[in-house]
Design a protein around this nucleic acid. Structure first.
Length: 719
DNA sequence: TCAGCGCATGTTTTT
DNA sequence: CATGCGCTGA
């Protein structure tokens, strides 16, 4: 492939970025400007034109999905496998380094990764040990304290307590937690980064080795880096390793979890003289949508500055719908989706974006009513589900007896009569002897410290694990998983759970076996081992839904929409207090992050964007009135077109007297009539709005109080 | 040990 | 409103 053919398909800014000779290159890539394309082409260019070996290239992303996509596209472009290239997430790469250099990093060879769920459990245990009052010291907060300090690169000794008892206590928890992790050979996510940073810090010869090896570093979504990731990159890049960073300060929406938008601004100061290339030509959206996005984001300060443009068509104006309440809003969305589907769009080409997950419910109901298949993103991912974690904990314990987190999780799951008292005894022994709980259990059994019943159960449990360990030797991964799930009694345990929850859980356990099979098929030799699978499960929590995608309308938060695009987008709940969130109201930095979120949302739309807000919305059980979001006002006026309700809505403030003819004659719902609703029970019609199928009735229910219902969907029965 | 009750709680999410 | 958690009683 010649250089010309490589850059042929690129615009001039893209080509400039791809072929830059600068050692420090910052590519400011606006939404939809071909960011990944540039990254991938630059890698190809480095290999083909600069004769770099794939082996000497490091490409870092934030999510596994992005890493996988990058690898795929490199292989497609270069028509060659990319196996020798290091492409991965920060955490994935840090993990890889630590596995390779566990000795230098002072880790046990079989160290385990602690996910946030396990981490919280451990923090709770430690706080209980210290007899901290959970209402005064919420474990979640302590966990956040630990993680945010680690993200900042801080160990307990580095943190100033300001003489503050609150701070002192949290530092103490951090310290104890860290000791517990060390004892059990466990690393949490932040620790992976911190450790690998310290590894290089303390082992200069290792750092030098990697600085020699990597001839180019590329980083995606740089605006999302936190302090430790920044320091890690700075250390690896040193003075001489060329580095390309790609990012968009306008799309920085993760400040609340440690991402520092400043990093992209200070890059030039810290890494050295930097060439900046702006990608502003957008290939995704209509001019109308881009103008709206530009108009909104222009209200932020301190931007590096970009103006998206397109050579494509103007497109339709953005439709703005002022809904009466959240139910009406959902009804509007469903109705417009139906229209779009009738025009031949596929469901998966349509997305509904909202600020918070709680908003999905009403929308979901509207989709159900309209029989529109949908998929909600969010919630627990596959490897995070309780039943999956239970099964994995058995596997973890089998390959690593010291894993206290796993031990705690399954010692009484399914319940085998080991209560808190017995466990407390084991924990105490473990603490006194400074040994893992497994060993403590043996001691406790030896000393016959438990009741006969509990002692017998514990003995059986230990025996089961030992037995499985024997049995699993020589078996393949999926056979191991199958055997453990069967022998553990987890299937029966979850089957007995009430509701249809249990059924789904059993399904998931079966799915886990398929996942191990797939893992076996993809990896080869040692990489398909149980230990490797456990790492995989911890580092890559999997998808939200196990089964593959039907053609569905996509529903998700604005945050999870980042990086995606859809021909039609609905942004709902665009109201003051909701979006921007009330919690960001008094802080300008956070308000600007909300605005960036609006920018992200708008730029997801390719052809058509709908924005809606509700005048009244039920939040936490009570009705709240919200003004339209400031972000709506910030959209240039000519980009917006107000939608009036399909059936003209009039607000009958009073019932007209004397002229019965004014009242809708085509609706059976007359004032004062008694009706019955399948859910709300009996009630009386108090008001009526509009005509035809979209008319709304106000019903005062005896049991449920006053409700507004859309006649078409209300399923009201006249009494 | 487990079900049932009362109470607090309630952005955004990846690894 | 709805969920999830901890605590209580059987």
């Amino acid at each position: 492939m010649h250089q010309s053919s490589l850059i042929q398909s690129l615009n001039s800014a893209q080509a400039q970025a791809v072929t830059s000779m600068a050692d420090r290159l910052l590519v400011l890539a606006g939404a939809g400007s071909g960011k990944t394309r540039v990254l991938v082409h630059r890698i190809a260019w480095l290999i083909k034109e600069q004769q770099l070996s794939p082996f000497s290239i490091l490409a870092v992303t934030f999510t596994n999905k992005a890493a996988a996509e990058m690898r795929n596209r490199i292989e497609t472009l270069m028509r060659a496998p990319s196996g020798s290239m290091w492409v991965g997430t920060f955490h994935g790469i840090a993990h890889r380094l630590l596995r390779m250099h566990w000795q230098e990093a002072g880790l046990p060879q079989n160290f385990q990764i602690l996910d946030s769920d396990d981490q919280l459990r451990l923090v709770k245990r430690i706080m209980r040990q210290q007899e901290l009052d959970e209402s005064r010291w919420p474990p979640k907060q302590a966990q956040a304290f630990i993680n945010s300090n680690k993200d900042e690169g801080l160990r307990p000794d580095h943190i100033d307590d300001y003489g503050d008892i609150y701070q002192k206590t949290l530092i103490g928890v951090y310290r104890q937690y860290q000791e517990a992790c060390e004892r059990g050979g466990m690393l949490d996510f932040a620790e992976l980064l911190l450790r690998s940073h310290e590894l290089w810090l303390h082992q200069p010869q290792l750092l030098a080795h990697y600085q020699q090896r990597f001839r180019h570093i590329l980083v995606d979504e740089f605006q999302d880096t936190n302090r430790i990731q920044y320091a890690w990159l700075q250390m690896l890049a040193g003075k001489n390793v060329p580095i390309t960073i790609v990012g968009d300060d306008d799309q920085s929406i993760y400040g609340w979890r440690g991402a520092r938008i400043e990093n992209i601004r200070s890059f030039g100061d810290d890494f050295g003289r930097t060439e900046v290339v702006r990608l502003e030509q957008n290939y995704r959206s209509t001019a109308m949508i881009l103008n709206a996005a530009n108009g909104v984001i222009a209200n932020n300060r301190d931007r590096l500055g970009k103006q998206l443009w397109t050579s494509g068509e103007d497109g339709e104006p953005i439709s703005l719908y002022s809904a009466f309440n959240e139910v009406d809003e959902a009804r509007f969305v469903a109705e417009r989706i139906q229209q779009a589907l009738q025009q031949g769009l596929r469901r998966s080409e349509i997305a509904i974006l909202y600020r918070s997950n709680a908003q999905s419910r009403v929308l979901e109901e509207a989709m159900l009513r309209g029989s529109i298949p949908y998929r909600i993103y969010g919630g627990h991912r596959f490897f995070e589900r309780a039943e999956i974690k239970n099964a994995l904990a058995y596997l973890r314990l089998i390959c690593h007896r010291d894993d206290d987190a796993a031990f705690e999780r399954v010692v009484n799951t399914p319940s085998r009569g080991l209560g808190d008292k017995s466990l407390e005894r084991i924990r105490n022994t473990a603490r006194e002897l400074k040994v893992p709980m497994w060993q403590a259990s043996l001691t406790v059994l030896q000393h016959k410290e438990l009741s006969t019943k509990a002692g017998k159960s514990l003995h059986e449990f230990l025996g089961l694990i030992e037995l499985l360990d024997q049995e699993l030797r020589g078996l393949g991964l999926s056979e191991q998983a199958e055997r453990v799930i069967e022998a553990s009694g987890l299937i029966a345990f979850h089957q007995n759970e009430k509701g249809d929850r249990g059924e789904a859980r059993v399904e998931n356990l079966k799915e886990l076996i398929s996942a191990t099979r797939e893992f076996e098929a993809n990896g080869e030799g040692d990489s398909a081992s149980l230990a490797a699978f456990l790492d995989h499960a911890a580092l890559e929590a999997g998808d939200t839904q196990a089964q593959a995608d039907e053609d569905c309308v996509q529903m998700m938060t604005l945050h999870s929409a980042k990086g995606l695009e859809f021909p039609i987008v609905f942004m709902v709940g665009v109201e003051e207090g909701l979006f921007p969130s009330m919690k960001s109201a008094d802080d300008l930095d956070r308000m600007e992050e909300e605005r960036r979120l609006a920018y992200v949302g708008i730029t997801r739309a390719m052809k058509k964007l709908f924005i809606s807000h509700a005048e009244s919305r039920r939040i936490y059980g009570s009705e709240a009135l919200h003004a339209p979001s400031r972000f709506i006002r910030e959209i240039p006026h000519h980009c917006l077109q107000e939608v009036r309700a399909a059936a003209k809505i009039t607000r009958p403030m009073a019932v007209p007297r004397g002229r019965a003819a004014v009242q809708n004659t085509d609706t059976p719902y007359r004032l004062g009539r008694s009706v019955r609703h399948p859910k709300f029970g009996d009630g009386v019609i108090m008001g009526c709005e509009g005509q035809g199928p979209n008319s709304r009735v106000r019903v005062n229910f005896a049991g449920a109080g006053e409700k507004w219902l859309v006649a078409q969907y209300a399923r009201l029965e006249l009494l």
